[in-house]
Measured scan of single mutants.
Amino acid sequence: GIQEIVAMSPELDTYSITKRVKEVLTDNNLGQRLFGESILGLTQGSVSDLLSRPKPWHKLSLKGREPFVRMQLWLNDPHNVEKLRDMKK
């Protein structure tokens, strides 16, 4: 599951990941809330907090790293936007 992926993950640049996620969401007119609930399993508040103030990787616990790994996996998925759009319906 995701825990193994997080444990094996190389250090991620949390700042550039969140910046990229925000760009993709904005460009495709997708909400942070939808993204947070569907992709990260987080509430709106947690998501906007994460996206606006990402902590550096080395300061995060494994649990804290999980959303960033999920974001990275989502960014790597060529169908990420379509999938999210489908969830919106």
Rank of each mutant, 00 (worst) to 15 (best):
H58Y: 08
T14H: 02
K22H: 05
H58F: 13
D86F: 07
L73G: 08
N76M: 13
S16Q: 14
R20C: 05
V21L: 04
L34R: 07
W57F: 04
K88S: 09
G45S: 12
G64D: 12
L12F: 06
D13N: 11
N29L: 10
P67T: 09
D86G: 13
D77H: 06
E82S: 11
L51M: 09
R85A: 11
V69E: 08
K83Y: 06
S48H: 15
G64N: 06
F35C: 02
L73Y: 09
P56F: 02
N29F: 08
I39S: 00
I5H: 13
S38E: 13
T18V: 13
L51C: 00
V24H: 06
L60F: 03
R70Q: 15
E4P: 05
K89W: 06
S61P: 06
P67H: 13
K89S: 08
Y15R: 09
P54S: 03
R33A: 14
L75P: 02
V6E: 09
T18F: 01
R70E: 04
E82W: 06
V6D: 12
K19D: 05
Q3L: 10
D13P: 01
N29Y: 12
L50M: 13
V21Y: 01
S9T: 14
I2D: 11
T18L: 03
S52W: 04
N29E: 10
I5C: 06
D86Y: 06
N80S: 13
H58K: 11
F68Q: 00
G31R: 04
L34G: 06
N28L: 03
L75N: 02
L25T: 01
Y15H: 13
H79L: 12
R65L: 00
L12V: 07
N28Y: 10
N29A: 08
G31K: 12
D86V: 11
L40N: 02
M87V: 13
Q3I: 06
K83M: 08
T18W: 03
D77F: 03
I2Q: 06
L42V: 14
E82A: 13
K59H: 09
G1E: 15
P10K: 12
L50R: 02
H79C: 11
K19P: 00
P10I: 06
I17W: 10
V47I: 11
V69C: 06
N28Q: 05
T18N: 03
E37R: 07
R85W: 11
Q44M: 10
D77G: 03
N29S: 07
I2R: 06
G45L: 09
P10W: 09
D13K: 04
R65A: 01
S9N: 10
G64C: 03
V69D: 04
E23I: 06
Q32E: 14
L12E: 05
S38A: 11
L73F: 12
L50C: 12
K63Y: 04
K19H: 06
Q44A: 15
G41M: 07
M8N: 14
Q72P: 05
I5N: 10
E4K: 11
E4C: 04
I5A: 12
L50Q: 00
L30R: 00
H79N: 13
G45E: 14
H58G: 09
N76A: 11
